[in-house]
Design a protein around this nucleic acid. Structure first.
Lengths: 213, 213, 213, 213
DNA sequence: TATGAATGAGAATTCATTCAT
DNA sequence: CATGAATGAATTCTCATTCAT
C-alpha cells in the first residue's frame, strides 16, 4: 500500500521555509547544500529527492519570491478596469506586497535580492512576463485613445523607466519612503498626460522623475 | 642593500590593475586566486606576499574603489567654502567621479558594485566615514544658522536619504540620467530651505524627491 | 493462502527481460538500480525483493546468458553418441545458439559480453563446467582409443585452445564469418587425427588453425 | 630561484607507473582518483596538478600503451622497404611488442585492454592512424603493381580483417600461440597472391583465414 | 623575492541499500 | 507485496593556503 506522495510538495515547501530561516540568520550568500540539509534535519542526499540540483533549489527559491506577484499580475490583467486604473493597480498591487515583505524583514528582503542577482534567469523571466503584461495594458490604453502617435514598444519601455522606483526592489530598498502609492499615482498621471508621440525624445533629457507632492 | 619597500606597494597596485583587467573581461564573480595569479604572470604563492589572503585582496580592491573618493572628501572638508557650497561640493565632486567611471566602463562599474556587496565591511567603513564628514559639514551649516531646531544626527540621516540617487551607486546605475549635478543642486536647495525642526516627520510623506527640470 | 512462490521467479524473469530491453537501447555500462527499477515500473526498494543486491542482479543476468547453453551441454553429455560426434555436438550446438543471438541483436550480444567481463566469476563458473564436460567427453574418446599416450588435462587444454574461435564469444564477435560449423568440423577432424602423445609441443608451431574452405 | 619544472613529466610518468603497479595487483576496473593518489603517496588534489581530470589520466594511460607502437609504425612507414616487406614489418614489429608485453604480465595486458575498452576514443585514434598508415603502404604496393583492379579502401579493410589475429589484442590474448610471425607471413603471402579485383566479394564468404602449415 | 609542490577541507552529486508503513 | 523516505559512503573536482627551496 503505497504511502500518499502528496507530501512531496509540502516537504519541498518546508525545506524552502527552513532555508528562509537560515537566510534570515546568516544572509543568502554561499550556503552549501549540506548546510541547508543540516538545517532541515536531513541528509544532503535526501535533499536531492526534492530538488534536482542546487541550481534547481535556488530557482525554486527565486520562483517562490515571484509566485504571489505573478498571481497578482494575472488577476489584475484579467480584471475589467479601464486601462489607466488597471495600470495603476498593476503596479500598486505589487508594490504593496513588496513593501509588506520589506517591512516584515528587511534583511530577508535583501537576501532574496541577492539570490535574484545570482540567478538572474529566473528574475529575467519574471521581468519579461511583467513587460508582456504591461504591453497588454498599454495596448488597451491605446484602444481607449491614450498614447496617441506612440509606438507600443517605445511606450512600454518609457513607462518602465519612469516606474522603476516602484518596481525595482533594488531601488525600492534604497528609496523606501519615496516608493509610495501616492507617488506612483503622480508618476502615472504624468505619464498618461504627458506621453504623446510628438516628442518622445525629450523625455530622455527631461525630468523623468518629477515626483511631486 | 634592501631596496625601499615601496616596490611592494607598486606591485600590489599592478596586481590590482591586472585584476581589474580580468574583471573587465569576465565579471567579478568567482575568480580564484590562481586565476588572478596567472593573469598577473606570477605564482599563486607569490600573491600571498602581497595580500595576506583572498579576503584581504578583495578588501584592497574595494578600498581601491574608494581611494580617490576618500581623498576628495577630505579635500572638500578641508576647504574654506561656506557650508552649503561645501555640501554641494561634497556630493557633486564624488558624483562626477562615479559618473566618469560608469561612463568609462559600465560593466566594470557593476563588477565593483558586486565586490562591494560581497565585502560590505569595506563599503560600510567608507559610508561611515562619509557620514562622519557629512556630520561635520552639517555642524558647520548649523553654526551658520541652517537647520535650526534640528538634531544633527537626524539631519544627517535625512539628508542622506534624499541624496541617495547621487550617492548610492546601486541607484545611480538604475537612474543614470536623473543623477545629475543639476538635480543634485535642486535637492540640496530644497533641503536647505525646507529642513527645519518643526515637522521632520512630514518628510516621510512629503515629496522627498522633488527633482525638477 | 500463500500463492506458490513461482511468481517470484516469473517477476525476476520479467525484470531481467526489461533490463535486457534497457541494455538493447543504451548499452550495458553503468546503469543504476534506480534506472532498472524505473524501467520495470517499480520502486528501487522493490527490486531488492527479487535480487539481494545489484551484484546478485548482474550475476543473474550473466547466469541467464548461460542457462540455455548449460542445458544444452548437459543434454549433449547425456546423449549416446560416439565420442567424436558428441564432441562435435558439444561445440556445434552452443555455437548455433550464440550465432543466433548475435545475429538477432549484435549490440545486445556485445553488452552481455561486457557484463561477462565485469562479472567474470559467473563466466568462470560456466567455463569450468564446460571444461569439466569436455574432460568427460575426452575421457570417453580415450576409452574409444583416441588421443593415445596423451594426458587428459593436456588434451583438454589443447582442444580448448584450438576451438576458441567457435567458443569464445569475444573472438567470435571479431571473426564472425569464420566461426562456422564447417570450420569447426575441420578443426575437430584435425584434432582427432593429429593429436597424439608423441609430439604435443609441435602444435605450438604447427598449423593450429588450419581452417579451410 | 624557481625550481626546475622538468620533473613534471617525470612525475606524471611515475604516477602512471604506480598506477600500473596498482593495476597489476587489483585489475583496472573502477579505481578512484583517491586510490591512485594514495598509492602514489600523495593527495588527491595533487594528482590534479598532473592530470586535468580522471578522464585525462585514463587517456594518458591509454596513450602510454600506444606510444611505443606509434613510434614503431612511423619508423616502418619511413623505411625504404619494398611494399610487401614493409607491410610485413608493419604488422610483425608491433606484434613482437605486444607479445613481449603479454608475456611479461598477462594480467596487466588484460587490464590495459579493459582501459582501452572503456576509453575507446584513444584506441580509436590509434586504430585510425594505423589504418591510415596501412593505406599508405597499400598505395605503395599498388604502385608496385599489387592488388590490381582493387580499390584502395576495400583492400585496406580486407587486409585488416584477415590480419586481426595479429593486430587485435583482444583476439591475440585468446589465441596466443597462433598469433605468430610465421602465421602472419603466411597470411600476408596469401593476401598478396590472392587479393585481386576480380572477385572481391567472394572473400567475404571464402576462407578469409586460410592460415596454413 | 618568487617558485613549484603539496595539502586539507569542502563543494556538488550519485548510488546502492535499508526500513517503516 | 510494494512504496516512498531516508541515508551514508563514495566520487570527482576546486580552491585557498602553506612551505621548503
Amino acid at each position: 500500500m503505497p504511502r500518499p506522495q502528496l507530501d512531496a510538495d509540502e516537504i519541498r515547501n518546508s525545506i524552502m521555509e527552513t532555508a528562509e530561516e537560515l537566510i534570515r540568520q546568516r544572509g543568502a550568500v554561499d550556503f552549501s547544500v549540506s548546510e541547508i540539509a543540516t538545517a532541515c534535519g536531513m541528509s544532503q542526499s535526501n535533499l536531492y529527492r526534492y530538488f534536482e540540483s542546487k541550481e534547481a533549489f535556488y530557482e525554486a527559491m527565486a520562483g517562490r519570491w515571484f509566485e504571489e506577484l505573478n498571481t497578482l499580475m494575472e488577476e489584475t490583467i484579467a480584471s475589467e478596469l479601464p486601462a489607466k486604473e488597471k495600470m495603476f493597480a498593476f503596479f500598486a498591487n505589487r508594490l504593496a506586497i513588496k513593501r509588506a515583505r520589506f517591512e516584515d524583514d528587511p534583511k530577508l528582503f535583501e537576501s532574496y535580492m541577492e539570490i535574484g542577482h545570482q540567478h538572474f534567469e529566473v528574475v529575467r523571466g519574471y521581468i519579461d512576463l511583467a513587460d508582456h503584461y504591461l504591453a497588454v495594458i498599454v495596448a488597451e490604453a491605446m484602444a481607449e485613445g491614450h498614447f496617441e502617435d506612440m509606438e507600443i514598444d517605445h511606450t512600454v519601455s518609457l513607462i518602465n523607466l519612469m516606474v522603476q522606483p516602484f518596481c525595482n526592489p533594488d531601488i525600492m530598498m534604497n528609496m523606501w519612503p519615496t516608493s509610495t502609492d501616492d507617488n506612483l499615482r503622480i508618476v502615472l498621471d504624468t505619464i498618461f498626460i504627458g506621453l504623446k508621440g510628438k516628442s518622445p525624445v525629450k523625455l530622455d533629457v527631461a525630468p523623468d522623475l518629477r515626483i511631486a507632492s
